[in-house]
Each structure stands twice: as C-alpha cells, then as structure tokens.
Amino acid sequence: MKLTVIAGARPNFMKIAPIIEAIRKQVEKGIDISYRLVHTGQHYDKKMSQDFFDQLGIPEPHSNLEAGGGSQAEQTAAIMVRFEKELMENSADLVIVVGDVTSTMACSIVAKKLNTKVAHVEAGIRSWDLSMPEEINRMVTDAITDYFFTTSEIANTNLRKNGVENNRIFFVGNTMIDTLLKQIPNFRKPTIWDEALLQPREYFVITLHRPANVDQENELKYLIEEIILNSHNLPIIFPVHPRTANVLAKVGIEAPNLYMIEPLSYLEFNYLVRYAKAVITDSGGITEETTVMGIPCMTLRNSTERPETCTIGTNELLGVNPKALKPSMESLFKGEWKKGSIPELWDGKSAERIVSHLVHLFA
C-alpha cells in the first residue's frame, strides 16, 4: 500500500507526526506499507513550519510544493497545479489529508480528479459558519472523501446526516492529542518565562488571528484593552500571529503586563499553556489542548467546530463581543470555572487506530 500524506500549515504538523510514526511501526512488523510526505509550503515561516518538523520528529518531506503566499485563490491554485504534477509522477493508493486548511481541500480535489482515494483525518467537524474559510474547506473535502476518520460522535452524526455510510466512518479519536500526550515531557520553558518572571497559574496566554477579531484596528484594540482591564494585573503573554502583527503595528497598544512576543515553537507554546491560569483564544485546536491539560479556555468566537471542548472540556464559547470577557474572568478569579474531562478516545492512540484501519481496508 502506497500512501501520500499531506501537510501544509501549522495545525497539520501535530496531526501527521503520530500517523507517520504509526506507519513506521507497521513497516517494522513487516506490513507492506510505504508513504510519501508532501509539504505544500502553505506555511513557510520557520516558526510556523520548520520548528514543528524538528521538534516533533517529522522526517524531511519527500517533496515541498513551496506554494505559500498570495490570496486564498492564488494559494489554492498553486497547490493544485503543483500537487497534480507530484501525484502524477508519484502515484499512490491513498492520499491522506488532515484538518481543514487550504492544502486539505486543494489536495483532496486533485487526488479525486486523478481517481485516487482520499482519507480525511478529523472529518465531519462543523462550525456551520460559512464566513470561515476553514468551514468551506471541511465541507468540500468531506463531500469527496472516501474514508472518514473522526474525533467525536458529533462528527460522526454530521457525516451521517450528509448521507455518508457507516462503513466509511471510523471513530478513532484525535491525532493532535496523540502528539500532545507524547510531547508533554519534552515541553520547553520559553525565554519569556524568566523575562516576565512568570509563576504557574499566575498569567494568561492569548492567541488571536480570526478576521472577526483582528482585521479592524479599533475592534482589536478594544478587545485587548478589555483583556488587560479584567486581568487583575497578571502578565498577559501574547504570541502574535503574523496576520495579527500587521494590524497591531497600527494600533500602538501598550500595558505594563502585556507581553507581545514572536510566535513560539510547539514545545515552548504548550509549556506556557500547561501552566497558565487561563487561555483566551479564537483558535480551534488550542481548545482541544487546553481541554486535555485541564486549563480554563475562553474562545472569542460565535461558533465552534469542536463543541465537545465546551460540553465535556474546559472551554467556554464567549462570542466576539469583548464585553463577554468580564463575567467570565470574574468567574475564573472566583475559582468557579468548570473542571471538565477528556473526550472519548482522546488517549494518544488515534494514529495507531487509523493505520490499522487502513491496513485492513487495503489488505
């Protein structure tokens, strides 16, 4: 069995690392399985890409399409043109895509048009918000996928409602959590820890990159000011996404307890998350990591494609109105935040299940 594994952007790297490790274990058992790792180059910044390969032990890609930059349409087109050539020159029995980034959708389309089967890892999740590019990527990918590997029963239900047969849905858990659980012992203290004199449970971590939160200067300034106002003067560590940095440069916001820093590597960022009092974010993946690590999380979005992090985990969906932060922060400081628990099959063995299913399917 010949597999082509696609990675394109930061959220993908944590998801493919355990899959590649699981493939290698099958090879060691004598199973006839091989893979080709294709990096689309969607994220080309070192902190957003190469550091993750280094720290997570991901081997050098067999091919880098170098399709970063440009508008979403330009990037989609570049990935499709270059991946078509790649797949025609290196045929596969199955193309594995993960998550919901541009690369996921673009490579799925190319594979299907070349009559190659597609497996989607993290299939079926939905925010029902079509203003999010990721939601469109999910819907398009799932519309043409052959095998669906899911993280929750909610995702399974979404797929069934779209007419996907049960024998193509495989509830395996969350490969992102495979990586998290494996790497917790390797987390690294970032330099900001000593520079800001941080103490466990005595600081906040924030990440912002969604258009609704960062595209408008005044709205972004208001949001950050509201976080500062309700922080009880605890340090606020803000690794700034490149998208957000462009807007922040025009805002000029400052506060003694606000530390705006460069993006961190995976091991450094999750060290901060593990010991934070809480995380304030508009990311989806971070809400999964905070749930497993038991860290309070406030999500500044109107919807989430990972509702289990709210119903089972430590996450709360606050919406995009900054005023929603005050009562949540008050609840946090009163010690009233929910404890949460870990969703089913988020146990570090998801990738092993995926590869076992593939071996069976292609036997």
Score class of each variant (00 low, 15 high):
residue 343 P to G: 04
residue 255 A to V: 02
residue 214 V to I: 15
residue 76 T to R: 11
residue 230 N to H: 14
residue 78 A to Q: 13
residue 318 L to I: 12
residue 202 E to K: 15
residue 187 F to E: 00
residue 62 H to R: 03
residue 302 N to V: 11
residue 336 E to R: 14
residue 29 K to P: 06
residue 285 G to E: 05
residue 77 A to C: 08
residue 131 S to G: 12
residue 232 H to F: 11
residue 67 A to R: 03
residue 76 T to W: 08
residue 336 E to Q: 15
residue 250 K to H: 12
residue 360 H to A: 14
residue 242 P to Q: 07
residue 20 I to E: 01
residue 214 V to Y: 08
residue 290 T to S: 04
residue 141 T to S: 09
residue 178 D to N: 10
residue 199 Q to L: 15
residue 124 G to R: 01
residue 229 L to W: 02
residue 21 E to I: 04
residue 218 N to Q: 13
residue 22 A to I: 01
residue 225 E to F: 00
residue 86 E to T: 01
residue 147 Y to K: 00
residue 68 G to V: 09
residue 342 I to W: 12
residue 61 P to D: 00
residue 142 D to W: 07
residue 292 V to S: 04
residue 361 L to W: 11
residue 60 E to K: 14
residue 301 R to P: 07
residue 208 L to T: 10
residue 120 H to R: 11
residue 227 I to R: 08
residue 320 V to G: 10
residue 109 I to M: 13
residue 220 L to P: 04
residue 131 S to P: 05
residue 243 R to H: 08
residue 36 R to N: 13
residue 13 F to G: 01
residue 193 W to F: 12
residue 73 A to F: 10
residue 179 T to G: 01
residue 124 G to Q: 06
residue 89 E to T: 07
residue 332 L to E: 06
residue 227 I to F: 09
residue 187 F to I: 02
residue 260 M to P: 03
residue 311 T to A: 14
residue 154 I to L: 12
residue 77 A to W: 03
residue 190 P to L: 02
residue 190 P to H: 06
residue 301 R to H: 11
residue 248 L to W: 09
residue 242 P to I: 08
residue 116 T to N: 03
residue 236 I to R: 03
residue 92 A to C: 06
residue 239 P to E: 04
residue 83 F to K: 00
residue 214 V to E: 09
residue 123 A to G: 09
residue 189 K to L: 03
residue 285 G to V: 05
residue 97 V to K: 10
residue 330 E to L: 08
residue 266 Y to D: 00
residue 101 V to I: 14
residue 248 L to P: 02
